[in-house]
Design a protein around this nucleic acid. Structure first.
Length: 552
RNA sequence: UGGGGUGUGGCCAAGCGGUAAGGCAACGGGCUUUGAACCCGUCAUUCGCAGGUUCGAAUCCUGCCACCCCAGCCA
């Protein structure tokens, strides 16, 4: 399942640590999501890294929810995140943990810091704290409460826990250095008072530990050998280390940072993604245009394609913006050899076959041009068929290889037809085409000697079922959307619905929702959304590569 | 102008002092009853810039420059 030729600076580090016996047991990693939103493809990179490394080195991985802020977290996200990690193809087995599992121990460690005179209770208001922190270029100033006695701090902290103070009135702060050039080391807040119920601990606690205090301790308690996180936490590493150095704990994981995934025409910001949902730009977190795992799933993207993508983008510390072409490539690549082919038309144009005598001719076609295991399906050819509007032109652009007046074209897996005449409406648009077919040109036994320039797909009227085809395009119209301007840069053409037809045989397939509609793209049948048997709903997973573009 | 991180082709990314891997994209050709897939081939005299060390530098040293992150009682 994994590619052991993958080498990146983190895997190199892990290898070295094993070789030089720097870790006693096996490799331990963790994926630590906060249950306050849905997982996106950026998280997938981290999931593949953490679970991938454990798998490659015979280690284990924890799925640990970082649930230290009851104000923004909820059980619903816990459920959704587990579903998405599983779907991506990873198994944490029995190792499902929550930072909140460790609240009692975390509290004890906090008391320990106080007893060692390494933390103090601070009464500064939010605004006062902000002002005393200084700025990027000015040092901060000591809190007037910094010199309280250990006893007073301990008593105050216990009263905080007991609920004697209102939300936000006091904090527990580390006693480090207000003049530190790294702002994170300027006596950071370790605990804050929040009178709110927590999705797991209910109202047991009214003080909640901050990320910086929690994360390192949880990593240590779980014996994490390599604590992998994204670059923006690099500035927090000194604090991660400080906490573990100043409490009595026997394990100290190294924090290693890598750059987060950037994807062109997308954003990974939970805030912006949420705005898109809230303001109805998209139908929800699982809208097929969203870079969320649930959105990709709904679009029909196989999890293996996402894993392949994550392996291909690599792991470094460089800022990156991956082109969407790479993701599309990975998707097509994993679908290519196993996905059934079928014919569909998006914008039906009726073609009347004037010289057909039988009501219908039964034909056979393979479900896949190369993969014979997929078998064959039957289709019919009859008096009225539909082709795509794009495949017919009165005045064709140069190099057009489809149907034109007086011209020939092959109908895929059927016959060669010749356009005899067209019917147009008052605007001049073609509403119907009259054609004759060459009986001797049947696919597989063509003796006609005719050489049409191209081949197009078709659906015979009485062999087709209605299909709603949802085509998706990039979420934003610019490669690097600006967070502040997401409304303007949202791509209004990112979702287009077509009402067309697919051949009947597709309807009977129940073991695989993925199809390639020849010449159109890979589509995903939504069993959930099909309102009835005559109205199938498909989402376009990814279009086919365009080998030819008409010049306008 | 404090601290941290990063600069190799259009986008990723190897490279770890011995003379620029690979993938995606693009472009040319072959094959083709999907303008798909597949197959061949082309695509960095040069590694942010300037100096220096060395027989030899993308790799070592010095100095510049550019970009990203940090001033939540978010993670």
């Amino acid at each position: 399942m994994y590619d052991d030729t993958i080498k990146d600076f983190i895997r190199e580090r892990v290898s070295r640590d094993i070789q030089e016996e720097r870790i006693s047991g096996g490799v331990v990693t963790r994926f630590p999501p906060e249950p306050n939103g849905y997982l996106h493809i950026g998280h997938a990179k981290s999931i593949c890294l953490n679970f991938g490394i454990a798998e490659e080195f015979g280690g284990i991985t924890y799925l640990r929810f970082d649930d230290t802020n009851p104000l923004s977290e909820s059980e619903a996200f816990v459920v959704a995140i587990q579903r998405d990690v599983k779907w991506l193809g990873f198994d944490w087995e029995s190792r499902l943990t929550f930072a909140s599992d460790y609240f009692p121990q975390l509290y004890e460690f906090a008391e320990e810091l106080i007893k060692r005179d390494k933390a103090f209770v601070c009464d500064l208001s939010f605004e006062e704290l902000q002002r005393s922190r200084g700025s990027l270029i000015e040092p901060g100033t000591d809190s007037p409460f910094r010199n309280r006695s250990k006893e007073e701090n301990l008593e105050l902290f216990r009263r905080m826990r007991a609920g004697e103070f209102a939300t936000g009135l006091k904090t527990l702060r580390a006693k480090i250095d207000m003049r530190a050039p790294n702002i994170n080391m300027r006596d950071p807040v370790l605990y804050r008072i929040i009178h709110a119920s927590h999705h797991r601990t209910d109202s047991q606690w009214c003080i909640y530990p901050m990320y910086d205090f929690t994360h390192c301790i949880c990593d240590a308690l779980e014996g994490v050998t390599h604590s992998l996180c994204t670059l923006e936490f690099a500035d927090h590493r000194p604090l991660y280390d400080w906490v573990l150095e100043n409490i009595n704990i026997n394990f100290h994981p190294p924090q290693i940072e890598f750059s987060r995934l950037g994807l062109e025409y997308n954003v990974m910001s939970k805030r912006v993604l949420n705005q898109l949902v809230e303001n109805r730009f998209v139908s929800g977190w699982d809208d097929p245009r969203m870079p969320t795992l649930s959105g990709l799933r709904k679009r029909g993207v196989p999890p293996a394609a996402i894993r392949d993508f994550c392996n291909r983008v690599g792991v470094t510390k460089q800022n990156n913006n991956i082109e969407t072409e790479l993701l599309d490539f990975c998707i097509r690549n994993t679908l290519e050899s196993t996905t059934r082919r079928a014919m569909a038309v998006k914008q039906p144009l009726a073609v009347e076959i004037t010289n057909i005598e039988a009501d219908e001719l039964v034909l056979e076609a393979p479900w896949h041009p190369k993969n014979e295991e997929l078998g064959v399906r039957t289709l019919t050819f009859g008096r009225t068929i539909y082709i795509d509007h794009d495949d017919f032109a009165i005045s064709p652009p140069p190099k057009f290889r489809r149907l034109v007046p007086g011209g020939l074209v092959r109908l895929r897996y059927a016959f060669i037809i010749e356009c005899l005449d067209v019917e147009r409406d008052e605007d001049g648009t073609v509403t119907k085409v009259f054609a004759k077919y060459y009986p001797s040109s049947k696919s597989g036994s063509d003796s006609s000697g005719l050489k049409p320039k191209g081949v197009i797909q078709f659906v015979t009227a009485n062999n087709g079922v209605k299909a709603e085809m949802h085509d998706y395009d990039r979420l934003f119209s610019v490669p690097i959307p600006r967070q502040e301007k997401f409304e303007l840069e949202f791509n209004p053409d990112s979702h287009v619905v077509h009402h067309g037809f697919v051949e009947k045989a597709v309807f009977a397939i129940s073991d695989d929702p993925n199809f390639q509609f020849e010449r159109l793209g890979f589509y995903f049948r939504s069993f959930d959304e099909s309102p009835n048997q005559d109205q199938l709903v498909f989402h376009r997973t990814v279009p086919l590569n365009q080998g030819w573009k008409p010049k306008l």
